[in-house]
């Protein structure tokens, strides 16, 4: 469903992604691990269409479409979702209103009828139940004044509502204590399905205790340098990232 080939991307003059390949099939969960500065966030941002990155080579195909030529909203309408490492605060924009606008924009783009207020609220309630969340976040402005844990929960809630085909979780574990991490991971697990793929981007193995990946990739210096099963994550945890530098030097 997602096929990334030879992707190279710059931030300013500096090349961050240096020929990245990644193949993701339906329902698969891929973890992407790597040290700081490896290009993990750049990959998330380039795939979701954030400004400030220049793709210089390579392709990313999502459901047969050239992902990189699409506006960010078109990518989301196609079924891509980015759970932000740092969810953005939108003071004055009510969370429920925001969620409804997002869902209906996506439905409209797909030629589905927009949901009215009543059906929307019913849907929201169902989703809250699945994730074991209460509705206190809904009445507030989007992420404004939310704690770190609340922000991440709100990301997962949006994901539950928008039902993406591919979700990219960008360092969702950063800044979370163990309880908050468990709540978020439980939410993600509740959303696993044969039709939904996920890319879990993380620095630490810890998150993968809760979200079991099918594949683990090591991203270093802008490329995937190793891929394997979930045992690779444990190996990384044990050895740290030091060996990568050594391996790079040797190569």
């Amino acid at each position: 469903m997602l096929s990334v080939k030879g992707l190279r991307a710059n931030v300013g003059e500096k090349e961050i992604l240096k020929g990245l390949d990644l193949e993701i099939g339906p329902g698969e969960i891929h973890a992407i691990m790597g040290p700081n500065g490896a290009g993990k966030s750049t990959l998330s941002h380039v795939l979701s269409g954030r400004e400030g990155y220049a793709v210089t080579a390579g392709t990313a195909t999502f459901h047969g479409q050239d992902l990189l030529s699409l506006e960010p909203e078109a990518r989301a309408q196609l079924g891509l979702f980015l759970a932000f490492q740092y969810p953005v605060e939108l003071p004055g924009v009510n969370n429920t209103y925001f969620l409804k606008a997002a869902l209906n924009s996506i439905r409209k783009a797909r030629g589905e009828p927009e949901l009215d207020a009543v059906s929307f609220l019913r849907l929201i309630k169902d989703k809250l139940k699945i994730l074991h969340l209460d509705d206190s976040l809904l009445k507030r402005a989007v992420n404004a004044g939310f704690s770190g844990g609340e922000k991440k929960r709100n990301e997962i809630f949006q994901m539950a509502l928008l039902e993406p085909k591919l979700a990219i979780l960008d360092e969702t574990d950063s800044g979370l204590d163990i309880d908050a991490l468990r709540v978020v991971a439980d939410g993600v697990n509740a959303l696993r399905s044969p039709e939904r793929s996920m890319i879990v981007v993380t620095h630490y193995q810890r998150l993968l205790d809760y979200i079991q990946p099918d594949y683990v990739h090591v991203l270093a210096q802008g490329r995937i340098i190793r891929s394997g099963g979930k045992e690779l994550a444990l190996e990384l945890e044990e050895k740290g990232y030091g060996w990568i530098d050594a391996a790079e030097q040797a190569a």
Binding site: R50, E51, V88, A102, S105, L162
Partner: peptide, 13 residues
Amino acid sequence: ERLFYLRSRGIPA
């Protein structure tokens, strides 16, 4: 940043 956040949720610019 704020604009991108909304657009990443499928909301047209």
